[in-house]
Design a protein around this nucleic acid. Sequence first.
DNA 1: CAAGTTACCTGACGGC
DNA 2: TGCCGTCAGGTAACTT
Length: 279
Amino acid sequence: MPELPEVEVICQGLQKHILGKTIEDIYCSGKQLRVPVDCQGMQRELCGQQISSLTRRAKYLLLSMKNGACLIIHLGMTGNVGIFKQGTARKKHDHICWQFDDNQEMRLNDTRRFGAVHLLPAKEAKRLKKDFFAATGPEPFARNCTASYLHKRAANRSQAVKSFIMDSRTIAGIGNIYANESLFRAAIHPAKPVSSLTESEWRRLLTIIRKTLRHAIQCGGSTISDFVNASGDGGYFQMNFQIYGKNGENCVACKETIQKTVIGGRASFFCPACQREKD
DNA sequence: CAAGTTACCTGACGGC
DNA sequence: TGCCGTCAGGTAACTT
């Protein structure tokens, strides 16, 4: 489920339930996630500590404690985080539960276990966090994320524009759904070589990426207002898909039949009339 | 180097 | 009913 908008919605939804809470205990299922889970380290660094902030960077959640320790949580393909009352039945694939001092707990559920939880001990958290995101590109909404930057970075590269905007080193947070949706809305063929886009095309694409992400966040935000016992994923922006998964259906703009292809190993959908490969 | 492919894991779905 | 292949929102380690 989680690309930038979903992670942002989860982040905002969780805040009022966890900020200022003290972590008292932590449960780990023992199952491996994509990266080994440091249960003992979490006990040592987090228990008895108060949560001071929860933010998002790229598709990661960053949970910081008052003592400086930090957790970087990634949801992979199927991860979700919700707030539940302690003692209520845990679900299959609930892998980590952080128990608070108010009889609530935050649970990380992840069926496929492509997610990850990184612990940054208080002593080195600042440096480790910097290292962790050293290669991560700018946030799409950031001032330093400009059409000029993308245009320059794309120069002399043959890569498909869709793979390029999905590369987190180029720009953070865009996954398969929003890459497909943004390129359709910008009328750019997903396989177009990045170096062939003009700066004005980058300007338009960046504007549309921002608009698409913002819209998705607003949809999620309006539907999921309370994260107590949240299932989390569920439909919201899905109602607004114009191209993703619409293989064989008619384009909303011109009625042409939507095509599916594979780019960089990922399902890619496009309208052959609206998104022409050669200009 | 850049760009493409594969592996990680579980479950849902369609065809037979 | 059930077995099998295919596919899925991400990332990083491979290979070419």
